[in-house]
Nucleic acid binder design. Structure first.
Lengths: 133, 133
DNA sequence: TTAGATGCAAATGTTTTGCATCATC
DNA sequence: GATGATGCAAAACATTTGCATCTAA
């Protein structure tokens, strides 16, 4: 099972209830922006501060176990780092889904026409999800 | 030749010197964030206001002849809309290059595993450009 | 002449920082 | 007990808005 305390310890972050809650929210909900996180955590921690959310999210992004995803026409969202994957963003309901597709075709195409050294390939599909169609 | 006045007229925007300058900066430099635009326009228009830049850039994005590109680990940049293309972002010098590669392979792959209806596919490669290697 | 653009100042929104207090290790 | 986290308030930064004046059509 997924254990947020162990994850935090692995990355040398002290295990505080607020941090555990941030990680668990992200585990449960997949992608969240800062505001979503704040609103949800307020229920458990009525006096939690936005500064705490920012500090922790930034720390986790630096430790590379949170991923920052910049989305066209929407707020930046955060997610737990997992297997490399792409994103589907629904223009209608705003929901973001993960999808694992092989992007190496693109990398190969790029490498054949350019000397750019690729570290990472971000793919965001914009469109309409199944429900909203 | 490229004519920014005609472009503005086509999209029902009054042709002002500030707007012409914005379009021409983007034509010349490719991708710019709000701050870059502001700094460059200040030379021509010492009293131009940031509000003017924001208002105009937003208007042009709405008219769909500017494109807003959200870049991982950097400020949002704007570019003139052209043929669909992907972006190469150099982690070392920050430069953004355009590259035209066929993303339909990805779209086909996605369509075969999901019912998501794709309107647009954004691809951003992060890595190191030729110069910085 | 009219509709809309500009620049300024103020308002709003977002993110970061400093610091006293508190919790984890 | 020491190191670092939290929450608060303030600061810094980013973006939008209202309005008087000016300009393009």
């Amino acid at each position: 099972m997924f254990n947020s305390s162990i994850l935090l310890k692995e990355y040398n972050l002290k295990v505080t209830p607020q941090r555990v809650a941030i990680v668990e929210e992200l585990y449960k909900n997949g992608h969240m922006n800062i505001d979503d996180l704040y609103k949800n955590l307020l229920e458990k921690f009525p006096s939690i501060s936005l500064a705490t959310i920012y500090k922790n999210v930034n720390a986790m992004v630096e430790k590379i176990f949170l991923n920052e995803v910049k989305v066209p026409d929407a707020k930046t969202v955060y997610e737990l780092v997992k297997e490399e994957h792409s994103h589907l963003v629904c223009s209608s309901c705003g929901k973001i889904e993960d999808i694992i597709i092989d992007t190496s075709v693109l990398n190969n195409t790029l490498s054949s026409v350019s000397n750019f050294k690729i570290d990472n390939t971000e793919v965001v599909f914009q469109g309409t999800c199944e429900k909203c169609q």
